[in-house]
């Protein structure tokens, strides 16, 4: 009898820890929204998102240049990271001999494990001067941030795409090779198309990581609130904006920073839903009706 009671109690405790992640999420959302919504109401959602000027001194809170900054750095990073990480994941899944794989796997783990602030520091001492010397300007720029972000999102895209490629049944490759296709034809025409949903998921999650990155970006973008004329000019991203101004913000300014957090949260949740949806699609389309 007492044993039964103990079991019930433990089950209850485990249940509580189980739902803690939901409770924490709700708590986070509640706090961010309750601090951030007042600013959105007082500024107006449209003026907040599409406002071109962010100047707390005169009470103007428009985050549009920061949205552009985030999008620019993110998409430029994706532009570089997608080809490199796809090639790398194909290499890992299809081509690399075992020795090479043994070397590359920990490498990717290593890239994922390097602290953001180290990436930022590296960007500050290597990439920013490089851009300054070769392309002019201060070197603090969209491109510097994108280069750093490219490296930072490589591990995410590579490992998820590799899983997707590996999950394609070997029977497909066999069929293609047996028809006289080269390995590359097989990869291009059979394996990659079948893995597309997984690859898209990988890219979406990589994008999420780039949008959310703060420290590495803050150290190399120059943090000027502007829509840059070229990728060699400085920008400020949404995340950096929060990190830079939280220290001294009060009142409406303080709330507006939480509103920026609301934007970030919303974007990330949408990206995650999208990634889950695409992934769910995969399961339905591959192997359906097989045998």
């Amino acid at each position: 009898m007492t044993e039964k009671k103990e079991d019930k109690f433990i089950q209850w405790v485990l249940f509580a820890t189980g739902i803690s992640s939901i409770l924490i999420i709700i708590l986070i959302i509640a706090f961010i929204f309750s601090e951030g919504l007042p600013a959105i109401f007082s500024i107006g959602l449209f003026n907040f998102i599409f406002g071109m000027i962010w100047n707390p001194d005169i009470g103007l809170y428009g985050v549009f240049p920061m949205i552009i900054g985030t999008l620019l750095t993110t998409f430029l990073a994706l532009l570089m990271a997608i080809p490199l990480s796809l090639c790398c994941s194909i290499f890992l899944a299809e081509i690399a001999p075992p020795n090479m794989r043994k070397l590359l796997k920990p490498t990717i783990q290593g890239l994922a494990g390097i602290p953001s602030v180290i990436y930022g520091f590296f960007g500050l001492v290597i990439i920013v001067p490089f851009i300054r010397i070769h392309f002019g300007g201060s070197g603090f720029s969209v491109i510097s941030a994108s280069l750093i972000l490219t490296i930072m999102i490589l591990p995410t895209i590579i490992s998820i795409s590799e899983d997707a490629l590996r999950s394609i049944p070997f029977e497909y490759s066999e069929a293609s090779l047996a028809l006289g296709a080269t390995q590359w034809q097989t990869i291009k025409n059979v394996i990659v198309p079948a893995a597309v949903p997984g690859i898209i998921t990988a890219i979406i999650l990589g994008m999420g990581r780039a949008i959310g990155e703060t420290m590495a970006v803050i150290m190399v973008t120059g943090n000027v609130v502007q829509i840059p004329g070229s990728i060699f000019e400085p920008v400020r991203t949404l995340t950096s904006n929060i990190a830079l101004e939280m220290g001294y913000a009060t009142g409406l300014h303080y709330s507006a920073l939480f509103s920026t957090g609301i934007i970030l949260l919303t974007v990330i949740v949408i990206l995650l839903l999208l990634a889950n949806y695409v992934n769910y699609k995969t399961k339905v389309s591959i192997g359906g009706g097989y045998l």
Binding site: I24, I28, G208, G212, A243, M246, F258, N276
Partner: peptide, 17 residues
Amino acid sequence: FGSEILASIPSIVFGLF
């Protein structure tokens, strides 16, 4: 899904919270 969101929320948002 909750723990997935938790794993993906930008760290600066955790900072805000």
